[in-house]
Amino acid sequence: MAYSSKVIDHYTNPRNVGSFPKNEANVGTGVVGAPECGDVMKLQLKINPENGIIEDARFKTFGCGSAIASSSYVTELVKGKRIEEAIAIKNTSIVKELNLPPVKIHCSVLAEDAIKAAIADWRKRREQASAVVEKKAEEA
């Protein structure tokens, strides 16, 4: 199967690969997998709690070229977007941009799921954090 030039570009020169430091604030982490092929994808989003804008993103994906390219592209796509806009990103726009063939569509679905999982994690962390703050306030 031939990869499109955009997939090859993202694969050979992935953007925003890596992780944020462990205790970095305002980071949400999504880990998702494709059980059909065993690919695992981790996407981290750094989101400004004041305005809900995604300021930075990192990814680590272990899998085929299309899965790596999909997550690399997604990190570029979400930067500067508001949470609501990022959640609304559909896998079809990833398929279109990267010219993914039908057998690789599940890679784009994985990237879409990773965005949602990372945002869900960020929200959960915020709730937990505010619960702690409230508890401390009560105690004080």
């Binding site: 880990v31 695992v40 599940h106």
Partner: peptide, 21 residues
Amino acid sequence: KLAEDNKQVPPDLAELVFEVQ
């Protein structure tokens, strides 16, 4: 369908994957 409602990698397995990688 294997992938239906099944995107979550079991956390201990995910941890292992990232550690070994």
